[in-house]
Design a protein around this nucleic acid. Structure first.
Length: 156
DNA sequence: GCCAACGTTGGC
DNA sequence: GCCAACGTTGGC
């Protein structure tokens, strides 16, 4: 069982959007970075824990707890010429991009990037590394535990 | 809107 | 395979 942090721009897909979706589930379309793709394709398993993170917004931070709900499948947007995520080099026979399913279990108070940076036990999170841009990063069991504690505190 | 950091592309 | 140019991410 592994843990992950997944970034989404709330203007595109917010945690509320996912909660309003059938099954509170979303296919994690639009990833166009090989490292993030490979996490989905090779490493993510159904049931893995996911921290749902809002990026490129007024208050970036963790806003929900989720799980991986299905293994990686071809990302349909790569085949759609009308999509922002269209990839002319991808074919149905040889898809390039994949997406796992993510089911939101609960929305939380926003645990801000600033708060995460202030916590000494989280300083080694890839999310917090200088210059990090990866939209999917691994979270250690220890980090997961610390963050669950922080999310619990802020909900009281 | 700025810009640091990083990824990708393509000429050579 | 190098690397300059360019594009993107994402916090501020």
């Amino acid at each position: 069982m592994n843990y992950w942090l997944m970034k989404s721009e709330p203007s595109e897909v917010s945690v509320d959007d996912v909660l309003a979706s059938p099954g509170q589930q979303v296919d994690w379309f639009g990833v166009r970075n090989y490292q993030a793709r490979n996490f989905m394709l090779r490493d993510m398993q159904v049931g893995d824990g996911v921290l749902f993170y809002h990026s490129s917004c007024a208050q970036p931070g963790i806003v929900g707890v989720a799980v991986v709900s299905h293994l990686a499948l071809p990302d349909e947007t790569q085949f759609d010429p009308a999509s922002h995520y269209y990839d002319p080099k991808a074919t149905r026979e040889k898809p390039r991009w994949f997406c796992v399913g993510v089911r939101v279990l609960r929305k939380t108070e926003c645990l801000s990037l600033q708060a995460l940076r202030q916590h000494p036990d989280l300083s080694s999170m890839p999310l917090l590394a200088r210059g990090n841009r990866l939209s999917i990063t691994p979270v250690s069991a220890g980090q997961w535990k610390v963050i669950q504690g922080l999310l619990q505190e802020s909900s009281n």
